[in-house]
């Protein structure tokens, strides 16, 4: 058990180290120099050299890599080349938009997907099932940014219930914050809900074909009772796995939605940083996202060990 834990821990640390090397090299290899970008087309070569040295870009790459890693270990992500503020603070501010948005979208997607998935499985082969399958097919096919534009057209421009975008921060109150995140969260949630609903449906149908379900039915439980007391709990395992995957997608993948609703989130920060060659921000944010994903995996691995007694033996 201890051995298993340490093996997982070793994999965790090794993955992070490898990821940091890959991220740093990729970002550094990409053409484009942050100093030239900032100073534009009229800048003189000596001005660019002065700015490069001010930013520390004249240092050898290997030194910059270790500075970056060393800083991160102590929680210091460095200073943004373009914004000239602390990257840790910037990321922190942006997380206050991206994290609630991802959670909100995840919540909506789960609330929509689980009941519809159960409903479709219970009615499999009938009209209700067909309706859910068609709706989810549509949900998967429609890109979320297009859906976002339609939502804005109806609810912001026509009905004026919501503003067309922007997020003024949580200082203006919880209600205002949630209101400004509602349309983006719906736009993000619906395609995810469509996928999740299908997973729920097929997982439940598969479970309903198991022997113990037949036994439950044979001992006299109704179809609904069987689903609630026996099938659902077992069918939820693949659904939870998908929810976990969706969360990291929602956190990192909201770039386009953040553009459409001009939200000051992580996605928009990375997008701007890439165009401006704000290398340190790109590296740090990507590293942070990788860290989050690897950490989630690590925790899942450890949870498996707690759940599955077979993994507790040191022979594995």
């Amino acid at each position: 058990m201890i051995k298993y834990f340490f093996r997982r821990l070793f994999t965790f640390v090794l993955s992070l180290a490898l990821a940091s090397i890959v991220i740093f090299s990729l970002v550094e290899i990409a053409p484009g120099d942050p100093a030239s970008f900032m100073l534009g087309i009229n800048a003189q070569p000596d001005t660019i050299a002065a700015l490069r040295s001010e930013l520390g870009l004249d240092q050898p790459k290997i030194n910059r890599y270790f500075d970056w890693i060393g800083g991160m270990l102590t929680g210091d992500f460095g200073i943004s080349y373009t914004y000239r503020t602390n990257v840790t603070e910037m990321v922190g501010d942006r997380l206050w938009v991206s994290l609630p948005l991802a959670l909100y979208a995840l919540f909506l997607s789960t609330v929509i997907a689980i009941p519809t998935g159960i409903y479709a499985a219970a009615k499999r082969g009938k009209t209700g099932d067909f309706a859910v399958i068609s709706a989810t097919q549509l949900g998967i096919a429609i890109p979320n940014f297009w859906f976002a534009i339609i939502l804005v057209g109806i609810f912001a421009i026509k009905l004026q219930w919501f503003s067309a975008g922007g997020f003024s921060g949580w200082k203006d109150g919880l209600f205002n914050g949630i209101t400004s995140l509602t349309l983006p969260a719906i736009a993000l949630a619906l395609p995810q809900a469509a996928i999740l609903s299908r997973v729920m449906r097929s997982a439940l149908i598969e479970t309903l074909g198991e022997d113990y379900i037949r036994t439950a039915r044979a001992k006299g439980l109704s179809s609904a009772q069987t689903i609630w007391t026996h099938a659902l709990r077992n069918a939820l395992i693949p659904v939870l796995t998908i929810i976990g995957l969706q969360f990291s997608f929602l956190l990192a993948g909201a770039i386009i939605i953040e553009q459409v609703f001009y939200l000051p989130g992580l996605g928009r920060l990375v997008f701007q940083a890439i165009t401006q060659r704000d290398l340190i921000v790109v590296e740090s944010v990507v590293m942070l996202l990788v860290f989050a994903v690897i950490l989630v995996n690590f925790i899942v691995d450890i949870t498996y060990m707690l759940v599955d007694p077979r993994l507790r033996q040191d022979s594995i």
Binding site: I157, G165, Q259, Y262
Partner: peptide
Amino acid sequence: FKFISDPSAAFSAMMAQD
């Protein structure tokens, strides 16, 4: 000053009078 880079978002924000 607000910053809206996406052209379709610019249109919506103006139309919604945000």
